[in-house]
Each structure stands twice: as C-alpha cells, then as structure tokens.
Simulated scan of single mutants.
Amino acid sequence: MEPQLLCCEGDRPARAYRDSNLLTDRVLGALLRAEENYLPASNYFKCVQREIAPYMRRIAATWVLEVCEEQRCEEEVFPLAMNYMDRFLSVEPVKKNHLQLLGAACMFLASKLKETIPLTAEKLCIYTDNSITTSQLLQMELLVLNKLKWDLASVTPLDFIDHFLSRLPVRRECRSILRKHAQTFVALCATDTNFIASPPSMVAAGSMVAAVEGLQLKMLGNTSMSQKLTEQLAQTIRSDPDCLRACQEQIESLLETSLGQARQQHTVTMETKNSGEGQDLSSTPTDVRDVNI
C-alpha cells in the first residue's frame, strides 16, 4: 500500500485550529475600530440605485447563500460576499439584469479570500444556468475590485462571534452549538435589507443573545443571565443595552418571518406535487435570473 500525505485525505481541506491567542482585548478593539470603514450606505436604494429594489437584493442574497451551502463553502464566504455586494451597490448603479452577475463576482472574490480551494469561474457560471460567461464574470470581478479600492479585508459579524463566546460563562462543550446557532442568525441577517448598515459587532452581539434565548438559556443556567448577557455584550461593543435588545428582537422577528415563509412555501410545493399540476415551486439557485420580472 502506497503511503499518502495526511493533508490529501478526507473530503475537505484541513483548516487551522482557532487560535485563542487572537481572542484578546487588543484584537477586539482593532475590529471595533475597523468595522466602520466597511459599512455600506444605508440609503443606496434611493440615492444610488435606479433599477435595484430591496426585494431584488433579497432574491440575489438567497441565491448566493444557496450556492455557498451547496458548495459547502466556509461560513465566512457568504457574509463577506454580501458585504462586497452592498459596498459596491453603495457607489455604483447596477442594472437589474446584472445583479446575479454582481452576486457571482462577489462570491468569487470572497471564496478566493477565505477558501483553501476557491470556487471556480466555470462553476459559478453553471450556477447561473450559463446566463453569464466566464469573461463577463472576470470583468465584473475587476470592476468590483476597482470600486472597493482593492480593500477586501472587510469586518463581518463572524469576526466577533468567538470573541463573544470566550467572554461568556458557557461550558466548553456547549460553545459549538451556540456558535452554530449564532452563525445561522448572522447568515439570516445578511439576506435582509434592514441590517445592511448595522455594525457587524451589533449584528454579532444580537445574534449571540438570540441564539442563547433560542436555546432556552440551558447553557447559562438561569433566565436572569439573559439581561446580564445583553448588558455585558453591549458594554463590550460600546453600545447601549436597549439598542442591542432592539437588534435581538429584530433578529428573532426575522427568524419567525423566515420560518413562516418556509412552511408556507413547503405547503404549496407539496400541494402542487400531490395535484400533479405545474412544476416544483421551491426556490432554486437560478430564480435570481427572474429578478427583473
């Protein structure tokens, strides 16, 4: 039997372990100072874009998320891609039939920055049902880089999650599930236009509190810890506890709306299949092509 390199074994490339030495106050302070430099404009739909509406951005975001999930991208790729998209839309008008191309280019860049083996241009074109070409994707990539001034080291909510986890009175064995729930909330916020201009630290803190609430505070021991947690995280991100609480409630409301829409869509899909009429109405990665309808 021929010997093989350990790094070549397994379905996914090996990743470095999280370095606890980076979870310091100095690093957290640097993130808090830097996050404002990467915030998109909150009013770009009115002031910059003429054809792009909020619902179109939501469709594009859902498509990007579906591609990232199907390709098993690292969790940082999706929020980073959406940050690139929002920053680009803040400074450059885009035609509605170019929105999917922009989403693919932003995902392409984020994948290059965060993945050991990034997505290829050819694969992304296939996900658009070949409605774009590799040449168009590469041209859009250069345009995005130019408009973002090649500054791609954006701060996203995921950069704060481990910092917050290290400061919580949570058992080590519970941190994995808490991190997973918080990451889900972060991804959900990235699809919603109400969080476009929210500081990443606020979204991360709100997601963390919402995750703890969603797990019924079993990991923290008692309900009185919820208020203490909110106050602690608000102090950490230098914000008002009421603002953080409002962000948490907005995230929880978004989750309820999302789950309701998913159940409704599932019901319609099952009824359509049972009746034998029409086609599957479930969302597919190419639905974004119809964004101009």
Rank of each mutant, 00 (worst) to 15 (best):
G278V: 07
Q265N: 13
T236F: 07
E70H: 09
E252Q: 15
E2P: 15
E92L: 05
A204P: 10
L255V: 04
N222L: 01
S42P: 03
P157V: 08
G276K: 01
S154K: 10
V186C: 15
T193N: 07
K180L: 13
Q183A: 15
L23A: 07
S166T: 13
I52E: 03
T257E: 12
L99F: 08
E9P: 00
T267D: 09
H98K: 15
E231N: 12
D25R: 07
V91N: 02
E122Q: 12
V155Y: 04
I237R: 01
L143I: 02
E36R: 10
G214V: 05
Q279M: 06
L65K: 15
L124I: 08
I132C: 02
S166C: 11
F45Y: 12
I117C: 08
S154V: 15
E9F: 05
Y55A: 02
H98N: 15
C247W: 02
L89Q: 05
D287C: 13
E252N: 03
E173S: 13
L109C: 06
I196Y: 03
C125W: 05
F78V: 09
G103W: 05
R245G: 00
L229F: 03
L80E: 00
V91K: 09
T257V: 07
D11G: 03
D129G: 13
R72W: 02
S224F: 01
Y17T: 14
T286E: 11
N274Y: 05
Q265I: 01
G260F: 11
L22M: 14
S20D: 14
S258C: 05
A153W: 03
Q227F: 07
T156K: 06
L101R: 07
S258L: 00
H266E: 14
V186M: 10
E271L: 14
N274V: 12
I126Q: 12
R12W: 11
C47V: 12
G276R: 05
L259G: 01
S154A: 15
D151C: 10
I161M: 10
A197G: 01
Q136V: 05
F160Y: 14
D25F: 03
M208N: 06
V64A: 11
V67T: 08
T24C: 10
T128E: 06
S166L: 01
L102H: 06
K273R: 06
L32H: 09
M107W: 04
T128V: 03
T272L: 08
T120H: 06
Q265G: 08
R289P: 00
K96R: 14
E249W: 00
A197K: 08
L259Q: 14
A41S: 15
E256W: 02
L217K: 04
Q261L: 10
V288K: 02
A81E: 07
A110C: 11
P157S: 03
Q139V: 08
L119P: 06
R18H: 13
